[in-house]
């Protein structure tokens, strides 16, 4: 069902874990099937120096998380926010259609970590400039899965 590349990342996921004292944290739940992922980043200047993930989800969710961290590492914030679910899926040699939603998880998680970082620094203009207002809004509302977090965090 999965491409070789997906299986490769699934077998040997890159950048697993949580950065201690991270500069930004992004947590996102998957409203479609009820999964969860956390991304932590370390930012130096404007560059994502380190990035790690943890994911509770299917093979595709784990592989896309791994791929996102790999794509994001060493990128500037501006480059990193452009990583979309399509970018991730393409880099993995495609995903089965019913698994496309899983790659949202990883891309969203990364954007949220960046928003978190900028917010902590009070760089609200930068959030706007990078087109992350919607992510900020969703994070503040605890969207899109308050319900999900409730069930998962118990």
């Amino acid at each position: 069902m999965y491409s070789e590349k997906v299986m490769e990342h699934f077998r040997n996921p890159r950048n697993v874990g949580e950065i201690e004292n991270p500069d930004g944290v992004g947590t996102v739940g998957n409203p479609v099937c009820g999964d969860l992922m956390t991304i932590t980043i370390k930012v130096n200047g404007d560059v994502i120096e380190d990035v790690k993930f943890k994911t509770f989800g299917c093979g595709a969710a784990i592989a896309t998380s791994s791929m996102v961290t790999e794509l994001a590492k060493g990128k500037t914030l501006e480059e990193a926010v452009k990583i979309s679910k399509q970018t991730v899926a393409e880099a993995l040699g495609g995903l089965p259609p019913q698994k496309m939603h899983c790659s949202n998880l990883a891309a969203d998680g990364l954007r949220r970590a960046i928003v978190d970082y900028l917010k902590k620094r009070g760089e609200m203009d930068r959030i706007k400039e990078l087109g992350l207002e919607r992510d900020l809004e969703k994070m503040e509302k605890g969207e899109e899965d308050d319900e999900h977090e409730e069930t998962c965090e118990t």
Binding site: Y2, M7, F10, R11, C33, G34, D35, F56, G57, C58, G59, A61, I62, C102
Partner: peptide, 22 residues
């Protein structure tokens, strides 16, 4: 999650299934 369990077991020649949403 069950699907990732199954995939891992499959690599070891163990075939199982799951009731996971995924």
């Amino acid at each position: 999650e069950g699907e990732s369990l199954i995939l891992n077991l499959d690599m070891e020649g163990i075939y199982a299934s799951t009731g996971s949403a995924c």
